[in-house]
Amino acid sequence: MPVDRIEEIAVTAELLRGMPLPQPDGDGDKETRGRVLVIAGSVPVPGGALLSAIGALRAGAGKLQIATAASIAPHLGLALPEALVAGLPETAEGGIAAESGEALAERASRCDTVLIGPGMMDEAAVVELTADLLTRLDPARDPAQDPALCPAGGGPRFVLDAGALAGLRRDPAPVQRHAGNVVITPHAGEMAGLLGCARDRVEADPLAAARQVAAHLQVVVALKGSCTRIVTPDGRAWAYRGGTVGLATSGSGDTLAGIVAGLLARGASPEQAAIWGVYLHGEAGNRLSRRIGPLGFLARELLAEIPAAMAALAEGVESD
C-alpha cells in the first residue's frame, strides 16, 4: 500500500517505550549530551528565546548557547545563567540583523543542533538570516547510513519554528540541501503560508498538508493543533491526540521547539525527536491540568514537568 494511504500511528506511551531515547552512560559529561544553539528572540518578544532555550535543557541537552538581539542579551544571560548568551546586531524593529549569518555559521558549526525562529519578529530579516545560515553550513552526516562513505560529522541538525518558516515556500533550496536533518514546527496558519493556500484548506485535511510539505522540503513536519501530526519526508505519519486545551497558550510553541531541539542534541533522530517532543509537551500539559486546572497554566510552567514525564516513560509507568 502506498505510504500516503496509510493512516497515521497513534503516539502513545507504549509506542515511545518501543523507541527509547539515547541515554548518556554514567561516565559521560555534558559534552556527550550535545550542544544546542538557540537563535531566537527580539526586543518585543525576548521570552521566546528564554522558553525555547530552557526547553532544550529540560529535554536533556548538555550545553546551551543563545544568540539574540544585542540589547536583550544581558537580560537573557541573567535570566538563564546556565547558557552562554551572544548579542548580535539589531534591526530597527529590534530583531537580529540578517548580516549576522557569517558570525552565526562559525558558532553553529560547533553545535549538534540549531533552533531558529522563536520570538523573532522582524520577518524579512529572519527569512534572510535563515536562508543564509542554511546555505553556509554543511549538511549533517549520519554514519549509521554507511560508515565507510558517510563518516560522522558535517554540520548541525535544525529545528525551524515561527518566523524561520516564512521564506521556505519562496526559496526552498537552502532547507532542501539539509534533507532529512530538519524538523519544522508550524501551526495551521504557518502551514497555509508554506503551501500558499487558505488556512481552511489545511484544517480540512491536515495530514495531507503535512505530507505535501514534508515531501517537498524533505523535512520532518510537526503540524501543531488539537491533534498534532508528525510526518516524515517519505510520508510516514503519527498523531498525538492526548493533549489538553490549556496547551493553546502564549509561548507554548516555543517550549515545544526547544524540547525537540534538546532531544536532537542528545542524539535522537529527527522523527524520534519530533514524536517524543510532541508527546512530552502534551504530557507536561496534562500533568499541570490535573494539578492546577485545564486552563490558566503558563507555558513556562510546562518546562519543569518535562524531566518527570521522561522519567516516567523510562521507568515504564504512566505520567502522574
Rank of each mutant, 00 (worst) to 15 (best):
L21G: 03
K30N: 05
V38S: 01
S42C: 11
V43L: 07
V45W: 04
V45F: 04
G48W: 02
S52T: 11
S52K: 09
L57M: 15
K63V: 13
A67L: 02
T68C: 08
S71A: 10
S71K: 10
A73L: 05
P74S: 00
L76N: 06
L76F: 01
P81G: 13
E82A: 12
A83F: 09
V85R: 04
A86Q: 10
E90S: 01
G95S: 02
R107T: 14
S109N: 13
C111E: 10
L115K: 00
I116G: 10
P118D: 09
G119E: 03
V126M: 12
V127N: 10
L129H: 06
L129I: 06
L133I: 11
T135G: 15
P139R: 06
R141A: 14
P151D: 12
R157W: 09
V159G: 05
V159P: 06
G163S: 15
H178L: 06
G180E: 11
N181G: 11
T185S: 12
E190P: 00
G193P: 06
V202C: 06
L207W: 04
A210T: 04
R211W: 07
Q212D: 15
Q212I: 09
A214M: 04
L217P: 14
A222K: 11
C227R: 13
G242H: 02
G243T: 06
G246V: 11
G246Y: 00
S250C: 14
G251Q: 14
D254P: 07
L256H: 00
R266Q: 14
P270C: 03
E271H: 11
Q272A: 15
A274N: 04
V278E: 04
Y279S: 09
Y279H: 15
Y279G: 08
L280A: 02
A284Q: 11
G285L: 04
L298I: 08
A299C: 11
R300Y: 12
P307V: 12
A309Y: 02
